[in-house]
Design a protein around this nucleic acid. Structure first.
Lengths: 193, 193
DNA sequence: ATCATTTCTTGACAAATGTCAAGCCCGGGT
DNA sequence: ACCCGGGCTTGACATTTGTCAAGAAATGAT
């Protein structure tokens, strides 16, 4: 079973045959550091699964970039609203490192429901899970200080701290690189191993 | 056409007959100020549509309450994860004013898909929209100061400012009531009409 | 209408976070 | 191996936001 299949299996709980039916619709895609998977204003017409590497999702606001999230192995990358509603993408998605993805085009994605009748239901549940994760993230911003948010990220995703530029982590946590750096000295450097 | 039907229509774009089929599954529910629609730890086994009044969704964290959102007419109230996954609710949902709702039980909700085969698809799209709204909200917290968040809320939802206790708006924006009060003096009081 | 209670405001001060500028460090490309 | 440039750190200082406490105003109950 491939990584992709393992994740699909764990997220959607489909049968072995269904699993192979779905995963066969994906094709591998290698990206070099700096390559764009999607640009703001474009159309998100493919869905990616991260096999290896780190990918940043951000938006340019005036002079500065705001990083929404950094996807790592096991995550899907897509601008959901653009993918589902065929509207211009809000997010730019760019490889922070060389990456291996599995991608599926929108057209092939439609084909999944022919193989799995209950696919819209599974999709709904998956998106609802994503919704709940975002709710939790909003709660963090409503209730935690910058330092507490730093600690939580450090605790839950230590692998980020030595693999991606820290300025992006700072942005993702809603603070400046300087504040991030000071918290880092104070609260731990996130060196894994 | 009732308010409920109008909203279902605009959110889901279903036919006239489908619309009546769905809306007939809802029953009216009156709540008094202070009544609970749901409590943290309980099971969210019904979905509510706000016809009239204001409803607060919050969670108790230690000594203090953190308000995630205040629902007003046209909004649905539910703990989505609890409703869909039958897990204990994270949010407490309480009427801030006397309210009129339309509610549907989980069991009846299941019945919608028998009347409308493409319901899971419509549901998926609706939840995806909610997801995009939350993404936008996170972006606000990553990119805006307390004062800018205040202004945006004032601009987009002025009706909140003279109908619900301001302390809850402060919490929902991630700031203290004192800060909210000062911004209010500085940036406008939100008196509509 | 009055009272009791909650909510809001204000001031003084403390703490957290942002800004700007300079220098250091480290990694990648040549 | 070296150099260049991006990324990180640090310091000094400004600004924003939070805390605590007191009093004013608004609200709901009787």
């Amino acid at each position: 079973m491939t990584e992709l299949e393992k994740y699909i299996q764990s997220y959607f709980g489909v049968s072995r045959e269904e699993l192979e039916g779905i995963s066969s619709l994906f094709r591998p895609l290698d990206m070099k550091r700096g390559d764009y998977f999607l640009r703001t204003g474009g159309l998100s017409n493919r869905l990616g699964f991260v096999q290896h590497g780190f990918i940043r999702e951000f938006v340019q606001l005036g002079e500065r970039e705001v990083t929404k999230w950094i996807s790592m192995p096991g995550y899907f990358v897509v601008d959901l609203a653009s993918f589902l509603f065929r509207e211009p993408a809000r997010w730019t998605i760019q490889a922070l490192t060389d990456c291996e993805l599995h991608v599926i085009d929108q057209a092939d994605y439609q084909g999944i429901r022919e193989r799995i009748p209950r696919w819209p239901e599974l999709e709904k549940m998956f998106i609802a899970r994503c919704f709940a994760v975002l709710e939790q993230r909003i709660l963090q911003h409503l209730s935690l200080s910058a330092e507490e948010r730093y600690r939580q990220l450090f605790q839950h995703n230590p692998e980020l701290f030595n693999q991606v530029p820290l300025q992006y982590l700072a942005s993702m946590l809603g603070m400046t690189p300087e504040t991030f750096s000071r918290l880092r000295r104070k609260s731990g450097r996130g060196l894994v191993g």
